[in-house]
Nucleic acid binder design. Structure first.
Length: 635
DNA sequence: GTTAGGG
DNA sequence: CCCTAAC
């Protein structure tokens, strides 16, 4: 209880170990190298094929969409069919079974990295119930088997597997690209499977042993902490963030997110207009610059994939290495559209580190960059003839995407996902999660999901999967919708999209990105700001009405027991601001508007307890404030 | 460890 | 949110 505070802050949140350190280092090094030589990286040039397993891409649907989707299933375009995570797993198992597991060091499941819906779907654990422990382990195992070996990560294009899913009419070759794949794969391992390396001295040492092992609880003993930036908060910071684009912003380009760090210091900016903060060291700088034009599509240059600022976009274009072909007999009743994505662009990472930086820090820097990008999840967007195809319910045919159409104009984009329940949404008002008119959203990792839903403060060191259970019972977890989608979709309840649970501790619905708490090292950095959601405010008000204003610890226990990120001091502070907010003109208020009703209750409770001196008269002497209809006063 | 308040 | 003082 009281440890809430200390916990998050003091205890070093154990980072999930980055199994990919070595790999990352290699990659980072490569990037640097290439950067220096001013030569486009192989990645950028597309020389290195990035794995993309779009098998079932479009059919990939969140489980919750199955029901609504199934109807629109079109034999010819299974693209609309629902996708069930488990199925994917199975498929993968089948697919990769047999692959050697010996060389674990740099194994990557490329298919699960890039455009591969399946792998990503592993993250669908936003629906905790979906997976049983066994299944989780299966996934873990999967990651073990589901891999290819990458020697030294760069440039080596591994085999090409062809996923020929009988259930899918879309067959896409599965290419593998070591570098990016490694990033992701490793990342998944770390985050989703709770796998990590034990490189505790990563800061200065280059461990050669990285292991991948099935997830299992780990004792939190002095493991080096690694900041998880995969928080949606970052995405949130730049809502308009479009295709992922990364590039050096040393020039001072606006950056959606920038951070520099030292071993124990870092600076973050959460707003597009870079918010200056004291920074301890300029040695490291990883920046992401997002093109705010949400809606535009990044078209890859003819040849390379570099000219486009490294947008995380994969495009189907014959002229740029990606081809789309159609097949199916004209007479056939259900012609199939076959697409082949030959390469997939992974955002370029520009990293700047001093020569004195340790390999370990470099690795982490790279890892964090990648993590940040994918942390919030990615969704797939379909662009056809220059226009974004938003209606997920339409068949390919209806969308004009047929074997006869010019598939050169068909493209896919990977975009940041902003999945999260609106903070102001109470359980009952949860946004509708219709399955249509929304770009397909790639589910996020359990970790992110939880965090984004403010559900867990699971520290990185805490078993992610293990946490699922905790999360499972009393929260709503938004599955795969992006806020804007939810808005656009209108309120069409789709309970299946949620994991309904007793609305206890509403505060946990706070959807403020609850990322893996950014580690705050000894030099303790300010906690990330996490505005209270209306639900939280409501819970707070209710608790205060009952307990008074002098028992914050009790308030905490009563209403925020499970909101680890809210300390009683936080609650006290919030109350303080609430009282203030309630006493000022609405026009002067900032942030998410708090319902008048609540503010009135705040005032009522405030005055009530001011008179009843709850604080000084003892905890149980004063009677709780009877909650009546909010006072009429406006503020 | 909690509370209360200023910053 | 952080920090401190006070209990």
């Amino acid at each position: 209880m009281s440890s809430q505070r200390r916990g998050p802050r003091k205890k070093l949140v154990e980072d999930s170990k980055l199994c990919a350190f070595e790999l990352l280092a290699a990659v980072a090094g490569k990037l640097l190298e290439e950067s220096e030589s001013s030569a486009s990286s192989n990645i950028a040039e597309g020389k290195v094929k990035v794995g993309s397993c779009l098998d079932g891409d479009e059919k990939m649907q969140p489980k919750d969409d199955i029901a609504t989707k199934s109807e629109s299933l079109d034999r010819g375009s299974s693209a609309e069919s629902a996708f069930v995570p488990e199925i994917c797993v199975q498929e993968h198992k089948l697919l990769f079974k047999g692959l050697p597991q010996a060389e674990n060091d740099y194994v990557v499941d490329y298919s699960s990295v890039h455009a591969s819906p399946d792998p990503f779907s592993h993250k669908v654990e936003s629906e905790p119930k979906v997976q049983s422990e066994d299944e989780k382990y299966q996934i873990g195992d999967l990651s073990m088997a589901n891999r290819s070996t990458v020697k030294d990560s760069i440039g080596e294009c591994v085999n090409t597997d062809v996923l020929n899913n009988s259930e899918s009419s879309v067959q896409l070759p599965l290419y593998r690209e070591p570098v990016a794949g490694a990033f992701f794969r490793k990342h998944w391992n770390d985050v989703k499977l709770g796998i990590r390396d034990d490189d505790e001295n990563s800061f200065g040492c280059n461990k050669s042993s990285t292991r991948i092992r099935p997830f299992r609880p780990q004792p939190r003993i002095g493991h080096r902490r690694i900041r998880k930036l995969m928080t949606s908060k970052y995405w949130k910071a730049a809502p308009k963030l479009k295709d992922c684009e990364l590039y050096n912003t040393s020039e001072g380009m606006k950056s959606f997110y920038r951070y520099r760090k030292n071993i124990y210091a870092r600076e973050r900016s959460q707003r597009v207009p870079l918010k200056k903060r004291k920074l301890a060291d300029h040695s490291f700088a990883v920046s992401y610059d997002q093109d705010a034009s949400s809606g535009s599509i990044s078209h890859l240059p003819e040849k390379g994939l570099t000219g486009d600022k490294g947008s995380l976009a994969m495009v189907l274009h014959r002229d740029n290495g990606v081809s789309a072909t159609v097949s199916g007999h004209p007479k056939q009743k259900d012609p199939h559209v076959k697409l082949s994505i030959k390469s997939f662009k992974v955002p370029e990472l520009y990293i700047e580190v001093p020569e004195t930086a340790t390999v370990g820090s470099l690795k982490r820097t790279v890892m964090e960059a990648v993590t940040t990008i994918l942390g919030a999840g990615i969704r797939v967007g379909v662009v056809f003839q220059g226009k974004k195809v938003r209606d997920d319910c339409r068949t390919l045919q209806q969308a004009g995407i047929s074997q006869w159409s010019n598939l050169d104009n068909l493209g896919f984009t990977l975009e940041p996902n902003f999945t999260r329940v609106s903070p102001s949404m109470t359980p009952k008002k949860l946004p509708a999660l219709s399955s249509c008119d929304a770009d397909w959203t790639l589910p996020r990792s359990p970790a992110t999901s939880m965090m984004d839903s403010g559900i867990s403060n699971t520290s990185v060191d805490t078993p992610v999967l293990a946490k699922l259970d905790d999360v499972g019972h009393n929260k709503y977890i938004c599955s795969t919708k992006t806020p804007d989608d939810a808005l656009l979709d209108g309120a069409v309840p789709d309970l299946k999209a949620l994991v309904p649970v007793p609305p206890v501790n509403v505060e946990e619905l706070a959807v403020v990105p609850a990322n893996l708490k950014p580690k705050r090292s000894e030099l303790s950095q300010r906690r990330t700001r996490r505005p209270f959601s209306v639900a939280e405010v409501e819970a707070l008000v209710e608790a205060v009405e009952k307990l008074g204003t002098g028992r914050w610890r009790d308030v905490k226990m009563l209403a925020f027991e499970n909101a680890d990120h809210r300390t009683y001091v936080d609650l006290k502070d919030k109350w303080k601001t609430l009282v203030h907010t309630a006493s000022i003109a609405p026009q002067q208020r900032r942030g998410e508007p708090v319902p008048h009703e609540l503010l009135n209750r705040v005032l009522s409770a405030h005055s009530y307890w001011s008179q009843h001196q709850s604080k000084q008269q003892g905890k149980h002497t004063a009677e709780p404030l009877k909650v009546e209809d909010s006072t009429a006063s406006d503020c």
